[in-house]
Design a binder for these strands. Sequence first.
DNA 1: ATAAACCTTCCCCTAAAGGGAAGGTCAAAC
DNA 2: GTTTGACCTTCCCTTTAGGGGAAGGTTTAT
Lengths: 129, 129
Amino acid sequence: MNIGEVAQISEVSSKMIRRYEEQGIIPKAGRSSSGYRQYTKNDVHILKFVKKSRELGFSMKDIKQLVSLWRNKNRPSSQVKKIAQKHIEELENKLHEIESILTNLNHLVENCHGDHRPDCPILDELECH
Amino acid sequence: MNIGEVAQISEVSSKMIRRYEEQGIIPKAGRSSSGYRQYTKNDVHILKFVKKSRELGFSMKDIKQLVSLWRNKNRPSSQVKKIAQKHIEELENKLHEIESILTNLNHLVENCHGDHRPDCPILDELECH
DNA sequence: ATAAACCTTCCCCTAAAGGGAAGGTCAAAC
DNA sequence: GTTTGACCTTCCCTTTAGGGGAAGGTTTAT
């Protein structure tokens, strides 16, 4: 298979497939005599794994490790779990931060009449420290 | 005041003060005879406004507009409110996305024993599409 | 006079993509 | 048998909100 077909099946763009190869996240593809990258079903499988991992918000650094653990049939599941737990922690931190910002913003917006007049508690709050 | 002092007071790094100037977010600073940027209390005031806005997660694009509205004493508060509401919507979307990912990840992690054995529901889930 | 602490501009790096140019290849239609 | 269009290649630029650091000029204190 050429890269375009694989991109369509895996739903990972050709651009990103090349980049993942460059970053060592997926194995280097074989080449046709004219230099086109050649892929197998297994490559599609890996790319789908990568895509799913991205959808769960893992960083490419994490995904590199996850792919390597996935392909190592003797991995200890504790290593996988550790990566996932660290990611969960980071997401929870981000969640709390966003929640706190939203609380602030909602208060401000509620108090702003939002009409033609210039008085604006939002700007007032941003101004005063 | 030189840039370093302003940076310390406003808690915005010298680097970023220069960049904000470049981006037209803050007015161009005057220069001393030797080329050093010169600042007044008012500049500190603006920088604090910018910093507060960043802490609430506004993009620099939004902040540019907010600063301009803040300095325009005739602005309609509706414009400010609109920017804030759009930002709230975006944050809420991000929040929901993170919540949904966390639900998924937590299920996976709960089912992974996380020991020396290779069986791992996390990898299984990432693998199967 | 000299050293330390400033300041200036300039360029490179981050993460995860996308855009697009310039040029080579392949297959089908004419 | 050539042309055309769709594909592929590499290379470089752009995005966001910063940070790192080099090379060189200035100011201030010793």
